[in-house]
Computed example of a mutant assay.
Amino acid sequence: MKKSLIIALTLCFAIFSCGEKTENQEGQEMQNEAKQETVSTPTASSTSVSTTDMIDAYLSVKDALVADDQATAAAESQTLVNAIREFDAEADLEDLKAQVLTEAEKLVSGDIASQRESFQALSVGMKEILKVVGTDRTIYQQYCPMYKNNTGGMWLSASEDIKNPLFGSSMLTCGKVEETLAMN
């Protein structure tokens, strides 16, 4: 009987001591949880508020250039300018935002050739912004090697289908998908 009682007490002690955490273990777990909370990755909800209007306006300008429609491209560019101004950029993106805004403002006026040149420069900056803050949809970076005397040019699209805004109807399907910016 005494032997059974000692075994039972030893077993109970072992069970309870295995389930307890030391203060050090609890503190370490709390630190790990805090680290996980501070890691910030773009999410669809956070990016949709900050980039949706910009992406929508950008794609409208692209579609107008695909259709060789200088007037619509200019009108949609003003919407893009406003969306970029409203975009709440982090401090490290302010210079890039200013560069993108400058190119978007150039799209508002000018002939379609100069609009296309500004659009290509704008596309490079837009891609960099979206790579940092994320996107609310899948975006395809497309590239035409023949643009600008075969130096090449890129643009962003919501579709994998090539509709080249840098040449419009003269070379509508010239290009390829080079990169996919996945929805965050």
Score class of each variant (00 low, 15 high):
residue 94 E to M: 07
residue 60 S to Q: 15
residue 87 F to M: 09
residue 76 E to C: 01
residue 74 A to Y: 06
residue 84 I to Y: 01
residue 66 V to T: 07
residue 89 A to V: 06
residue 78 Q to W: 10
residue 90 E to A: 12
residue 88 D to V: 11
residue 94 E to D: 11
residue 58 Y to A: 04
residue 94 E to V: 12
residue 58 Y to K: 08
residue 66 V to L: 09
residue 41 T to C: 10
residue 54 M to K: 02
residue 43 T to Y: 02
residue 32 N to L: 15
residue 33 E to A: 13
residue 85 R to N: 15
residue 94 E to T: 15
residue 53 D to T: 07
residue 77 S to P: 08
residue 98 A to P: 08
residue 85 R to M: 11
residue 97 K to R: 05
residue 90 E to M: 06
residue 81 V to S: 06
residue 91 A to I: 05
residue 85 R to Q: 14
residue 44 A to P: 00
residue 32 N to D: 14
residue 52 T to W: 04
residue 78 Q to Y: 11
residue 59 L to N: 06
residue 90 E to I: 06
residue 88 D to C: 00
residue 51 T to W: 02
residue 42 P to G: 11
residue 30 M to D: 12
residue 81 V to I: 09
residue 38 T to W: 02
residue 91 A to E: 09
residue 71 A to P: 02
residue 93 L to M: 12
residue 36 Q to H: 01
residue 70 Q to Y: 03
residue 84 I to Q: 08
residue 82 N to A: 14
residue 86 E to A: 15
residue 83 A to Q: 05
residue 33 E to Q: 12
residue 33 E to G: 00
residue 53 D to R: 08
residue 33 E to D: 12
residue 79 T to F: 07
residue 73 A to M: 03
residue 41 T to E: 14
residue 55 I to A: 01
residue 55 I to V: 14
residue 45 S to P: 00
residue 86 E to Y: 11
residue 43 T to A: 03
residue 74 A to Q: 14
residue 97 K to G: 05
residue 50 S to K: 06
residue 70 Q to G: 11
residue 33 E to K: 14
residue 74 A to R: 13
residue 91 A to G: 04
residue 94 E to N: 10
residue 70 Q to F: 05
residue 65 L to D: 03
residue 73 A to F: 06
residue 48 S to K: 08
residue 51 T to F: 01
residue 61 V to I: 08
residue 82 N to F: 07
